[in-house]
Design a protein around this nucleic acid. Sequence first.
DNA 1: GATAGCTGGTTCCCATCGGAAACCAATCAC
DNA 2: GTGATTGGTTTCCGATGGGAACCAGCTATC
Lengths: 124, 124
Amino acid sequence: MQPNAYTGACPTRVVLDRIADKWAVLILGLLAEGPMRFNSLRRSIERLSQKVLAQTLRRLERDGLLTRTAFPTVPVTVEYALTPLGRTLAETVDALRLWAEAHITEVQAAQRAYDGRGLVMPDA
Amino acid sequence: MQPNAYTGACPTRVVLDRIADKWAVLILGLLAEGPMRFNSLRRSIERLSQKVLAQTLRRLERDGLLTRTAFPTVPVTVEYALTPLGRTLAETVDALRLWAEAHITEVQAAQRAYDGRGLVMPDA
DNA sequence: GATAGCTGGTTCCCATCGGAAACCAATCAC
DNA sequence: GTGATTGGTTTCCGATGGGAACCAGCTATC
C-alpha cells in the first residue's frame, strides 16, 4: 500500500496537518539557517506565544524533524536544531513562505476586488 | 517596505495562514489537474465536511487563487478552477503533500522512538 | 403522489484549540 | 531584596473546527 493523503485513514494526513502549519513553517525557516534557542525563536517570530512555541517544537521533535539539546548552564540553555530529515522538509516549506511574500500584492488586490462586489465576506 | 512573514503586522501572515492549511493543500492539489465541482471535491477528499469545504473554497476564491462558476443547469452545477495565480501556488503546496507521502515511514519511526523513551507525549 | 436522491450549500451545537497573562525554580547582577 | 534571565507549564476565555441536521428546487422511482 502506498501513502495517499486523500485517503482519510492514511497516516500522511497527520503529518500533513503538522507541517501545513503557519508556525511550523516559520520555525523551520529559521532553523534552516542554523540552531537556535527557545527565546531566540520566540523573539524572532512576532506574536508567537510561549505555549504554542513549546507545543510546536515538541511535536516537531517527536516527528524527528528537529533535536532538542539542553546544556546545564545557568540559566539552562536549550538549543533546537534541524535533523537531516527536517532539513529536507525545511526547503519545501520555505517555498511556501517565499510564495506568500512574493505574491502578497496580487492576493491583496484580489481580496479588494472580491470585497468590492458587495458579497458577504468570509471573514475579516 | 518588503514583506516579511516574521513580522507580526505583515499581511503575509494572513496569506501564510490560509495556504499553510491541510485542506487547502489537498484542494489545490486536486484542482491542479483540472476544474472540479463541489461534490466531486468532497468525495475525493475523505473526511472533509461540506462546511469546511465551502469555507475553504470561498477563502481561496477571495484570495484570487480559484474561480467559482455556477451553471444554471438542473440541479445547479458549480465548477471550481485554478486561476493563473493559484496555479503557481498549487505547484508549491503540492510539494508539501508529496513530502509527507514520501517521508511518512521515517516520521512514524521517529514517533515510535520518541514515545518509547517514556516521556509524556504531546498528543495522540 | 409520496419518497428518495441529486445539486450546493447554511445553520446549530459542542469540543477542541489558540492566545494572553500569570506563575514557576534557579541563579546572577545591582 | 529587587529585577532580569533561562525555558517552560498552568489557567482561563474567546475563537475556531467538525459532525450532523436542515434547506430549496428539481428528478427519478415505486
